[in-house]
Design a binder for these strands. Structure first.
Lengths: 209, 209
DNA sequence: AGATCATCTTGACAACGTTCAGATGGCGCC
DNA sequence: GGCGCCATCTGAACGTTGTCAAGATGATCT
């Protein structure tokens, strides 16, 4: 085979399996859900034998890690867009949250894989992925540019975590509840998302103003 | 076999399989994680053949539904305790959140199953489980007793959703990040949880007071 | 007692993850 | 330029899983 699949160093025998496998995996995950993604199906899709993937990934879970990595990169792209939008800094925090939830709604299966992988690697103490970390930093920086005090390490971290939690919670929630009535009443999905994200302050009642 | 397993109507042949299966399933899930729970292992644990469960559950997923149901009931118990605690109504909202997260931390695998099941049944339009719904109502009622306006349907629902999202997000987060440094700095886990839940107000900056 | 019906077992099937011995072919070395 | 090496891929196999169909078992009702 001399297909010359337009890969930079034109590395292997096949063209560039590994890349082909990851792409096939992402496609299958997004099409039929994470549960339906079998190693054999991925190999089939890529046109290789069921054992071929084992020369590029030690495990099925390592393939899923690669899929998750792809997801974090896409999320980072969505963040970039929201961060560059021309809104006032405080609004930008909220818009980042909206962008996050919209990403999860656009790629529900991918989103699930991203978090499943994080969970399964939680045994290592204080381990963080690069991409996961970069997304975290991005939120943190927007908070600072929105007026948070960079010197208050603890407060800043708590705020970042809180943002993340609310956005992640809402993202998961919208994946199995439609809230159609609410959305209609509020005049659209965006209004709904902003509404929820704005309202989380209820937890703060009685503390911290 | 005439074991007479102390079941109310002493219903079946075996004693009360179904109950035994659900309990074995919960045990296995909590012990080795949701992924390690196989139908055959559950049957083995209960001392029956691999096909026996199919007379009580149409699917593996239906067994998992039962496990999830068990989980929602346990969560409801934890809520009950937090709701009956002698705290001022506004604090009670936050303590409900803390109780929720503590439940998730105490039963991480069960918690995961609860949400995986909800997700997988999201195809039905506007379908809600009874237990899921009851937990939802409970939060809503505490919000009302904490001073929320019961007449403002939309606002109340948004607030309930927001509480839920923040708590669920934090619950998931703590399942794969330890936050040990932060907890130490704040003087304990409870302080950490309260800190995050109190801080979610950042999303509200620029909107809603 | 004898029939009925839910309950449980046996045995089978396809699909899966994973492994291992061997085929294949591109690359550097002489 | 020929040769050998080693990464890459194949084929076949093993054990396990979810699921199903056909038969055995035994409690319950008349």
């Amino acid at each position: 085979m001399k297909e010359a699949e337009a890969a930079d160093p034109r590395p292997y025998h096949h063209g560039d399996l590994r890349r082909a496998l990851v792409e096939a995996a992402v496609r299958l995950v997004e099409a039929d859900g994470p549960g339906a993604m079998s190693l054999r199906a991925v190999a089939r899709e890529a046109g290789v034998s069921p054992a071929a993937p084992y020369h590029h990934f030690k495990d099925k879970s390592e393939l899923l890690d690669a899929v998750a990595h792809e997801g974090w990169e896409k999320l980072d792209l969505a963040f970039q867009a929201a961060r560059d939008a021309q809104t006032s800094p405080p609004d930008r925090v909220r818009e980042l949250g909206v962008a996050y939830v919209r990403f999860a709604m656009a790629h529900p299966a991918l989103y699930r894989v991203m978090y499943d992988c994080s969970r399964d690697k939680a045994d290592m103490p204080a381990h963080v992925h690069e991409n996961e970390e970069s997304a975290y930093r991005r939120v943190r920086n927007v908070l600072i540019s929105a007026g948070a005090d960079p010197a208050d390490e603890v407060g800043l971290e708590l705020a970042t975590i809180a943002c993340w939690c609310a956005a992640h919670g809402l993202a998961e929630m919208t994946s199995f509840k439609q809230f159609d009535a609410l959305k209609a009443e509020l005049g659209g999905e965006d209004a709904f998302l902003r509404g929820v994200l704005s309202h989380v302050g209820v937890f703060a009642r009685g503390l911290e103003r």
